[in-house]
Design a protein around this nucleic acid. Structure first.
Lengths: 350, 350
DNA sequence: AAAGGTCGTTGAAAGGTTTCAACTAATGTG
DNA sequence: CACATTAGTTGAAACCTTTCAACGACCTTT
């Protein structure tokens, strides 16, 4: 199963420094530094001599010394809530776009929903003197987060808001998203709609369902028509479980449509529905949330509420840069509008 | 859409250093350092005084100075091929597990399939003096990669092998994976099987199809029964396109089963098949590859060849640590065995 | 020929941490 | 009481880069 090669062990050589390069090229330290940072100040022949020496010695600039001198690093960090959820990787993509323009690199961290991991990452990132931290926090009100901001690292909350005015936030209007979903279903004639999602401690879930309720009432319908199907998590497996609960309801009380708090739930519900022979959307219309790539690719393409994921990341990165660069930075709370993408899972005919 | 708070701008204070802490606690630099690194050497009362001073000043250890002194950092890096593919995020999870035990942090980078981004990341990581780089390279034979290894940074290839003996590699036996898929389909009675995937420049695709061919021939069948359906990429969209090509074939020549080079293709093919009313698996059995989470959650749960994704990451991280720690490190080429997971997409009855 | 510019190069200082040999004070031993 | 030991603490050096005032050499101008 494994096969060892016959290569000799890697020798533990000390890496060449500017000093070594200077000696080899017979110039001063300052000149080597100039070749690296302001090549136009250096005479062509000298520059060439230095560059040859660098190539010869395999010189690699030491970013620690550089950043130590500069007092800050050239990196941003994004602490993701769940690296396995396509939503967050798309947000990360947006962050990387902005960072690339500003010539910064992005340190991606995964808290994986565990508070102690989040905390460990924050400690480390503070010590690394990153230029700014973007985070989708587990709990936006945790004092831990305020502490980071207070100790001087620019911080931006992504996809979670907070009463806490000490930080910038970038989010999407979840109440509006819920309204869009329900208006769409009500327009299609649905009068009994399941709200699938949980736990309600999650701000997003609460807001989306709140919007749903508002829209339902404003349409002049009795809120009793909304059936809550709580779930323990926002996962595919929980979506299937929710489907089984729906199946268990008497036909007369069974909702004709479901609004799921995210696409993973919706995909699970869809799968379970097809498995028991329910037709989608004729027997059950389904609306998801996030519009991840797999939503469009589902067996029945999923209607979903799209969030501007990459834009969210881009804007968040811009804010963190503003905070780190401008002395007169003022915290902002950006809210984007979501958008409904109608697909087959709510249309009786393609 | 945005709302500015009335907070005063963040004052640009210089962060406290050990020197400031030493002054505040009326001890020497060395003592402060001892409190941080060897607290048992310090008298309890002194330690307390120093710790209070640190809390008071909001002292945060400067990782640059620390790493500069130490000559290396306390981080690993994983350069992912595609952060949007669940396969790679699972590998990353495995890497993080090992890193956590070794008390290192992991720098996740996304090359996104673009060579210039991969190259930029490698430059930066070398400059950061990361303790080791794990990478799923775009092209394992690129000289760029040998250069990194030659300049002294431990390097491990993940999920790609290479004749290049200068680096450790961790991979899964793709030929065996292909054999498993085809043996499963042949056992179920299939005699005309489509091989869906491409481009063939990708080593994995070639190996998987090579294994498929071997197994087919060893079963005593005519290789003409294998129908190649090349694709331009390993994506859901390409899977749908492949499905359309299948639909175009005359019934007599149409394969009764398809082996897809990865799950994204399989999901696309599945979706298209259902859309045109083909029953899966009765009219078309489908086998995917990777066994990503969405495979089990598909409308018809997908039979797939599972790779030990997290294990892959864990083993790779162990190898890179060995290379960075042990002077007598010897490069290894680890190959894992894949495993077939049979689900409804190849079983005529649940 | 002196004065003023330009161009290229230099050397020292700074940045924050860790390490380590050397030191002091206090305690124990004979 | 002198000496050895131990426990705590100290201060300087080292890690590598960047910056910047200063310098030398050469050229142009008056």
């Amino acid at each position: 199963m494994t096969h060892a090669s016959e290569m000799p062990p890697r020798p533990q050589i000390r890496r060449a420094s500017v000093k070594d390069v200077a000696a080899a090229a017979k110039v001063s330290l300052g000149t080597v530094s100039n070749v690296l940072n302001r090549p136009d100040l250096v005479a062509a022949t000298t520059r060439e001599r230095v560059e040859n020496a660098m190539a010869e010695l395999g010189f690699v600039r030491n970013e620690f010394a550089r950043s130590l001198r500069a007092g800050r690093s050239r990196t941003l960090a994004y602490v993701m809530l769940d690296a396995g959820n396509p939503f967050f990787t798309d947000v990360a993509k947006g962050i990387e776009q902005t960072a690339e323009i500003a010539d910064l690199s992005v340190f991606l961290c995964n808290s994986d929903g565990r508070a102690e991991r989040e905390s460990a990452h924050l400690d480390l990132l503070s010590e690394q003197r990153v230029q700014g931290i973007l985070i989708t926090p587990i709990d936006p009100s945790a004092p831990r987060l305020r502490a980071v901001a207070a100790r001087g690292t620019p911080l931006v909350f992504v996809d979670r808001t907070s009463r806490n005015l000490d930080v910038c936030t970038v989010a999407v209007d979840d109440v509006l998203g819920g309204r869009l979903a329900i208006e769409h279903l009500v327009d299609a004639g649905h009068r009994r709609i399941a709200l699938v999602g949980g736990p309600l401690e999650i701000g997003q879930v609460r807001d989306r369902f709140e919007g749903a309720r508002q829209a339902f009432i404003e349409a002049g319908l009795d809120p009793a028509g909304l059936v809550s199907i709580p779930t323990a998590a926002l996962s595919v497996a929980e979506g299937r479980t929710a489907g089984e609960r729906l199946t268990g309801l008497r036909a007369a009380r069974r909702p004709t449509a479901a609004f799921c708090a995210n696409d993973l739930l919706a995909l699970g519900l869809l799968q379970q529905s097809i498995a028991v022979g329910r037709r989608v959307p004729d027997d059950l219309a389904i609306v998801g949330y996030d519009d991840i790539e797999f939503a469009a690719a589902a067996a029945v393409p999923l209607t979903s509420v799209r969030q501007p994921r990459e834009e969210l990341g881009r804007r968040a990165a811009e804010l963190v840069l503003d905070e780190s660069d401008r002395i007169d930075h003022v915290h902002e709370h950006v809210v984007f509008d979501p958008e409904l993408v109608a697909r087959a899972s709510t249309r009786s005919t393609g």
